[in-house]
């Protein structure tokens, strides 16, 4: 299925090339913005410019990885509106798995690689890297992807009930954009809301802070707990939405 979607993405080489260039430009322009900030302020809140770049690259890893694997969610509205979703329900594959992982977006791969390069580069500039912190960072990144997965399941559930997908998923993306910078630079209560209610901070800032070695063990535990709650709640909501699915489009 993934191979088929990849082939489709490259049917129009012109389109694929333009999209890849666009994504790289977006990455580069925001990076340029951060560098300008760094050149004028040297520090943003308590973070050095390389720490800020590290957070930005971490945001891109989480955002792009979830888009890479979960791109099918963006097409889900069509399946519900056209009635094609009914076929998902009749097949011997979980409709949730089909709706989540039915297609990847290979065009996100260059940004993924670019993000890794910037993580390595900014980490080398920050210095003081220790193995336990690197492992903790990777573990919390996986935790962040679990939250991203929960958010996508929630969007699918809303889609089943209301057919509204396009804006819901983009609202999720808009909110996560706030995580391009460490969420604790924002004022309270926004910072708290972005950490515990809409867990952008847990997805991006907390893994980065674990890498910097400035994260308390309590927050690590709390992050894992919150992601577990989100994942369980989203799966339950999905089942609730399925029970209320009326199949009116088919």
């Amino acid at each position: 299925m993934t191979a088929k979607v990849t082939q489709t993405a490259f049917v129009s080489r012109f389109g694929a090339a333009i999209f890849i260039i666009g994504k790289i430009l977006r990455f580069a322009f925001f990076l340029m913005f951060l560098l300008i900030l760094g050149s004028k302020t040297h520090r943003v809140a308590d973070y050095s410019i390389f720490q800020i770049i590290f957070v930005f690259a971490t945001f891109n890893i989480v955002d792009t990885t979830s888009q890479f694997f979960l791109r099918e969610v963006y097409r889900f509205r069509y399946y519900v509106v056209s009635g094609e979703f009914d076929y998902f329900l009749t097949k011997p594959l979980s409709p949730l798995i089909r709706s989540l992982f039915g297609g990847s977006d290979i065009l996100d791969l260059p940004i993924l690689l670019l993000s890794v390069v910037f993580i390595v580069y900014s980490a080398s500039q920050i210095g003081n890297i220790s193995s336990p912190f690197v492992f903790l960072y990777i573990a919390l990144l996986i935790n962040a992807l679990a939250i991203a997965l929960a958010m996508h399941i929630l969007v699918l559930g809303i889609g089943v009930m209301t057919t509204e997908i396009d804006h819901t998923i983009m609202i999720y993306r808009d909110i996560t954009q706030m995580g391009r910078l460490p969420v604790d630079i924002y004022r309270e209560p926004l910072s708290w809301i972005l950490t515990f209610i809409i867990p952008v901070g847990i997805m991006i800032t907390i893994p980065a802070k674990s890498f910097f070695g400035i994260l308390s063990p309590q927050l690590v535990v709390l992050s894992l707990f919150i992601s577990a709650i989100f994942l369980i709640a989203s799966i339950r909501f999905w089942h609730f939405a399925l029970k209320n699915y009326t199949s009116v489009s088919s």
Partner: peptide, 20 residues
């Protein structure tokens, strides 16, 4: 929902500059 998105984008930049 479109207007909500516009306002979220605005708030992101507003709070960012407020912090900077």
């Amino acid at each position: 929902l479109w207007r909500l998105r516009v306002n979220l984008q605005l708030l992101t930049m507003y709070f960012l500059w407020l912090a900077i």
